[in-house]
């Protein structure tokens, strides 16, 4: 993301005397020096502990030294302009970046006493415990039942499959709509229903954390509200990390928010992390305030 110097909100902002003094080089350094800028100390139980997490695609650095703690059984939102590395960050948690041959991760993500990025950790085993819902609903072109049962089946689930499928669909608030057509193709569902089916599919393998990559961006407002309600309900049992472009959505559903921003060279850095209410009403960093009030990207 490139911002011409005269468009930089910091230059025009009269509220901060010091910032008017600063010239381009200082500003650049400010963005550069963002590593671990504001790290909120959590009172809540911690699900994931990020320390100096950097991601590279070949020689390109996509994320630089991100450190913060993700609270357990809360909704944490990752916000920031396009290309700031939100999705890259999200894909570190379940090692989806491993599928890109050139991707490389440094630093550590502690989860349940082990480093997710460590060599001993099996990414396949991790993905059962850390589930994911994608931007565009991607149900398999199979029956609704088969979609939900897919995960348990490949993971060797030996319990009562119909009960698990029903429970997962109930938790995804989809059971009442589909209970009579479990044998119908999942592709016959509406977009919102498909996305809830994908959530049910993710729940079915009983993960501890659910990652959501802009889960409502392809949906209409009504379906979006349903997904948001669902996220709040699911947070009672699961840790949810959601990437969103929609500031209102972040404010509505999340308890904690991380704001990321990319500098000139498109490397994403964490600017601020804290309780959503604080981030939205009283941000410590000027750039967070500018983004939330709509002056950035």
């Amino acid at each position: 993301m490139t911002i011409a110097p005269d468009e930089r909100p910091d230059l025009e902002a009269p509220r901060d005397e010091a910032s008017t003094q600063r010239r381009g080089a200082d500003l650049f350094e400010e963005i550069e020096g963002a590593r671990g800028a504001v790290r909120h100390e959590l009172d809540a139980e911690i699900a994931l502990e990020l320390r100096d997490l950097s991601v590279f695609y070949g020689h390109f650095m996509a994320l630089d030294s991100v450190s913060f703690d993700v609270p357990k059984q809360e909704v944490t939102a990752l916000i920031g302009p396009s290309g700031c590395g939100k999705s890259t960050l999200l894909r570190c948690f379940n090692r989806m970046n491993d599928l890109i041959p050139t991707a490389r991760m440094e630093g550590s993500i502690m989860f349940d006493g082990q480093d997710l990025l460590g060599p001993a950790v099996d990414s396949v085993g991790i993905r059962r415990r850390i589930g994911m819902v994608f931007q565009k609903p991607n149900p398999f072109p199979k029956s609704i039942f088969a979609n939900v049962a897919f995960g348990p089946k490949i993971n060797g689930y030996k319990g009562d499959m119909p009960a698990l499928v029903e429970e997962s669909l109930r938790r995804a608030a989809l059971w009442d709509e589909v209970k009579d057509d479990l044998d119908k193709s999942a592709l016959a569902l509406s977009g919102g229903q498909q996305q809830r089916l994908c959530i049910a599919r993710a729940i079915a393998v009983q993960p501890e954390i659910i990652l959501m990559d802009e889960p409502a961006s392809a949906l209409d407002p009504v379906a979006t509200l349903k997904i948001e309600d669902l996220m709040r309900e699911l947070a009672e049992d699961y840790t949810i990390i959601v990437v969103t472009h929609n500031m209102q959505q972040a404010a509505r559903v999340s308890s904690y928010t991380a704001f990321l921003l990319a500098g000139e060279e498109r490397t994403g850095r964490l600017v601020e992390f804290g309780p959503t209410q604080e981030i939205f009403t009283n941000p410590t960093d000027r750039r967070t305030e500018d983004y939330i009030t709509g002056r950035y990207g």
Partner: peptide, 15 residues
């Protein structure tokens, strides 16, 4: 077959 099918299965813990 779209890549999203592969991603969906990987995300559920498939080898």
């Amino acid at each position: 077959v779209p890549p999203s099918m592969r991603e969906g299965a990987y995300a559920l813990g498939a080898t």
